[in-house]
């Protein structure tokens, strides 16, 4: 057997081997083709996934930003509204404070007016003798057993007391008012229709010192009365003199003039 000649069996083996290799290579081609398609499609899928992920991420980001911006705007609007309300309330508070001040002033005015009116009324009451009155003053006791004092002496006495600043005067408990008058009847002195008898008691409200001085000054009424026979005069300061109210008197003819 020469080395160049191969037996038939060997040739057959070689052929089978080649066929097997051919099939294998064909399969490999097919497999690689298949694998290529596999990889390609998977790659496309993953590419899409990546792309979509980024798009979604970005969209979500902008969405969040938008929400934040919106809430900022909302906050700004709320702040603006509250500020507006605040300004309105401050205005109202100021307006109300002004009104309170006005009302206070008005009240003060009214109460002042009332006070003045009350004082005036008190003065008028005192002057006219509408109400009984109390206050410091003097008590004058005059004894005149022989009835030598005349109405004009009492007029002089009252006049002296008024000159000394008397605000209210009564004689024997009868109030002497602006319309009072002394007269005489049957040897007695009469005050507004009341006969004055026995010891006279004259009470006067005012500054006790001035009143006393008005009566007891040298050459005054007391010394004059002392010159009358039997007449004794006693002037006494009193911390709390009380005089009664005047009799009511109806005014028929006069009428106050309104206005001015």
């Amino acid at each position: 057997m020469s080395p160049g000649i191969k037996p038939r069996q060997t040739l057959l083996q070689l052929r089978d081997k080649s066929v097997r290799r051919l099939v294998e290579s064909e399969r490999a081609v097919e497999r690689s083709f298949h694998e290529g398609r596999l990889l390609a499609s998977l790659a496309v899928g993953l590419l899409l996934v990546g792309f979509l992920l980024v798009a979604q991420w970005r969209g979500n980001q902008s969405f969040t930003r938008e929400i934040e911006r919106q809430s900022d705007q909302d906050l700004a609007i709320i702040i603006q509204e509250i500020t507006g309300v605040n300004v309105g309330l401050r205005d109202e508070v100021m307006r109300l404070e002004v009104r309170i001040l006005d009302a206070e002033r008005e009240t003060k005015d009214t109460s002042e007016l009332l006070n003045e009116a009350a004082e005036e009324l008190d003065a008028l009451k005192l002057m006219t003798g509408l109400d009984p009155a109390v206050g410091p003053g003097v008590l004058v006791r005059i004894e005149d057993p022989e009835h030598v004092l005349l109405a004009q002496d009492f007029v002089a006495l009252v006049h002296e007391l008024r000159a000394g600043g008397a605000e209210a005067i009564s004689v024997n408990g009868r109030r002497v008012t602006a319309t009072s008058g002394f007269s005489e009847a049957d040897g007695h002195v009469v005050l507004d229709g009341m006969r004055l008898t026995g010891g006279y008691v004259v009470e006067a409200i005012g500054d006790a010192g001035s009143l006393e001085q008005a009566l007891t000054m040298p050459g005054g009424l007391e010394s004059r009365f002392a010159s009358f026979p039997g007449v004794t005069t006693e002037v006494e300061r009193d911390g709390s003199v009380s005089v009664g109210a005047a009799l009511e008197r109806r005014m028929t003819y006069g009428r106050p003039v309104e206005g001015d």
Binding site: V49, L52, L53, Q56, N60
Partner: peptide, 30 residues
């Protein structure tokens, strides 16, 4: 390696094109 490259390419593509999903479609695409 090809697959990793593909996903990286997808991400870069998305970043480069700066595509943004409208707010209304966020849930859909998510």
């Amino acid at each position: 390696l090809v697959l990793l490259l593909a996903i990286a390419l997808g991400v870069t593509l998305g970043l480069l094109t700066s595509v943004s999903v409208p707010v209304e479609l966020l849930t859909y695409l998510g």
